[in-house]
Amino acid sequence: MAAAVEVRGLTKSYGNVHAVRGIDLTVEPGSVTAVLGPNGAGKTTTMEILEGFRDRDAGEVRVLGLDPGSNGKELRERLGIVLQETAAEAYLTPREVLAMHARYYPHPRDVDEVIALVGLTEKARARVKTLSGGQKRRLDVGLGIIGDPELLFLDEPTTGFDPTARRSAWEVIRGLTGGGTTIVLTTHYIDEAQALADNVVVIAAGRVVAEGPPAVITAAQHSLATVTFLLPEGVTVGDLPVQGTVSSSGLVEITLAPADEVPVVHRLTGWALERGVPLQDLRVSRAGLEDAYLALVAETGDAVDVPA
């Protein structure tokens, strides 16, 4: 099956600002791809080129097999786009706004079904201006899917949400993937990428710095594990069978390469059993996507500032 999105060597500059400096991207049909990066990394510029809102300077771009630069009109019938800014008609109701948009598309979804899907049934007949930020954002998502798109772009769908609203938005997005919709979303929240995406593309300073499933990115970038426990009473760091550091609160920290993990933990627990000392709060932790992401972004230096 052909890729839903195929990008090769995409570049875009605004004057002297190189917002996108050669991005490659492949999105498999039916997958959720998260484009992760700090503000100004080139996420939105890339999305807007894919959506047909902006011209590109160079590179190959195919969205559902079409060039968004020249087939924008045809593409818009098959795409769902949720922009960064919320912008539904303030004096209409969610139901009216969705019904208005439904008739722009050849095969729209049922208005009530979409209202239920985005959790706005109770607010369906209230004016949009009376909705909360989270509710407006869910209406945006509803507008994005009313045309029953093959591919949905979500630009920072939960920015500015409180944690509860974010979780409920994630549920809505997960519900969409069940229907086979391909989703490309941008975010600067690592947990969001981890929670939703099959594939994560990390962009920094206009380039892709890492790509793969969240777990692979984590493993590739930051494979060190950390063992921590409280130093038992009457024992000094020197007495331990392995090298470690101890903090003023008595927490011992041992950093390990993956291959050493099992032997070192084995030696440590064997020693503790033998000596009859407890290893309180013993923990083996691995770097999350967040550490991997921060490390990746730090490597590329400061992000390029792009006018919003």
């Binding site: 004096y91 209409l92 139901r95 019904a99 008739r103």
Partner: peptide
């Protein structure tokens, strides 16, 4: 208090303008 949902048929040509007109007037 009540609004009917537009029929699920794609609006075209002049129909698209009257479709827009209806919501413009409401707003």
């Amino acid at each position: 208090t009540t609004t009917s949902v537009a029929p699920r048929k794609r609006a075209k040509g002049i129909g698209l303008i009257t479709h827009q007109l209806r919501y413009e007037q409401l707003a």
